[in-house]
Design a protein around this nucleic acid. Structure first.
Lengths: 237, 237
DNA sequence: GATTCAGAAAAGATAGCATCTTTTCAGCGG
DNA sequence: CCGCTGAAAAGATGCTATCTTTTCTGAATC
């Protein structure tokens, strides 16, 4: 396991603050900032202000033009899959909408990820999935909700990583976020439903026996429950 | 329509070159660069080298540590959904693999996007979709392949945008790329198959009458054809 | 082995010139 | 008096150059 995680601390606070503000609508699309205003406000040098602006530019949240400054772009232009953008959107006013959108994404992706895992995951990983599914049943039936959530997240993350598709694997963090949000916002029944537990096992077993169609079908049933729970229309922006 | 597109020119060549090189494996994970080496190589100042490094850092392709320099990160850490990363991966050695992965993503997403469009798109857009489907039939039956491709791309893009889910809409560019690649690499039959034409119309009609389940089902059939054409396993890395 | 230490490299600050655009406004013509 | 044209001014970033500070690595030393 490559230990290259010692890296994440370099998110400059300016990026965090400005990104969140833009997402929250404090700076509407079309609004202008200048490097100098950032220097004054955050007490940093031009170099640092530029660095941060470059990152926001690379997220397509602002663009910079001479004589004009930094212009905030339309939300439609933002890079929606960047973790920071997702995080900002999940804490801003459009919170519920973003949850719903990510849930829909999850519903779309997980069945194919399960199918991929059935065909491509190693025997070891496939057994680990079955193990997690069994733990889920135990924790679910005894109502230990927090532990259940942790294992549930581990199950779905492992499945996405094992899908063999790096585009799916990239979504692990997002989907963990969605699962956690569902529990912590009381959108989950206090006791996981027996059918859900059975479906988790069915998915794991299908993956275990490399049954592609079975894995996909059972995962589809599983997410269909989520889908029914989702309001018929997305919440407004 | 906000004209905020006058913005895209600020992709520094250094980012392009280094990003492509990293994706191509010229700089393996763990390899080290220094700002000074970039200054020398590209003949730019430290500030610019830093700017570009910041962007690559924000894509999680390198991290920078004092006394060490810039360290190339594992592919698993890269931001996979950034357009530049996708572009680099589509022109590097892992080209076919990336096409296959994106195709799988498309197969996952489009059915739900169709369902969303059925429920959420305006009457105008729904009619436009039906219009495009009709054009597709004409162009397909007369074998005008390039025009067919253009309209096909327009159809799928409009559908994703009309899905009402910004995470789906964000994928329009990617999916256009996949459709174009399929045609231009001879993965498409020279004459689009009649069933595919019928399914496009069926999707558009279902969306037109706000038939959520119908739209999803027909889109699933449509992408299932693609799926059968996809090799059973993904190409190796 | 643990500790110390020198030095390498980025982090950040500052200053200045170059360049690009927007705005303004003077002058002219109708 | 009004409107237009075009040139100059001003405001902002783009990029370069250089300096100090900070942090961490790697090796020498104990």
């Amino acid at each position: 396991m490559p230990l290259d995680d010692a890296a994440d601390l370099l998110q400059h606070p300016i990026i965090e603050v400005l990104g969140q503000e833009i997402v929250d609508g404090v700076h509407a699309p079309g609004a202008r900032l200048t490097l100098e205003s950032l220097q004054d406000r955050f007490g940093v040098s031009r170099t640092v202000a530029r660095d941060c602006m470059r990152v926001l530019e690379s997220l397509r949240m602002v663009y910079s033009r001479r004589r004009v400054g930094l212009v905030v772009r339309e939300p439609a232009n933002w890079t929606k899959y960047d973790r920071r953008v997702i995080r900002w959107r999940l804490s801003g006013p459009g919170r519920e909408r973003q949850y719903a959108e990510l849930t829909e994404l999850r519903i779309a992706v997980e069945p194919l990820a399960a199918a991929g895992a059935a065909v491509r995951a190693s025997a070891e990983v496939r057994h680990e999935l079955q193990d997690l599914a069994r733990q889920l049943r135990v924790l679910g039936e005894s109502g230990r909700l927090e532990e259940f959530l942790a294992v549930d997240i581990a199950f779905h993350q492992l499945l996405l990583e094992a899908s063999g598709n790096s585009m799916f694997a990239e979504l692990t963090g997002v989907i963990a976020e969605v699962l956690a949000g569902r529990t912590h916002q009381g959108l989950m029944p206090l006791q996981p439903q027996p059918e859900a537990l059975a479906e988790h096992e069915a998915v794991a077993d299908a993956v275990g026996r490399r049954d592609r169609a079975g894995a996909e079908t059972h995962m589809r049933w599983l997410v269909d429950e989520v889908r029914r729970a989702l309001a018929d229309d997305l919440p407004p922006h």
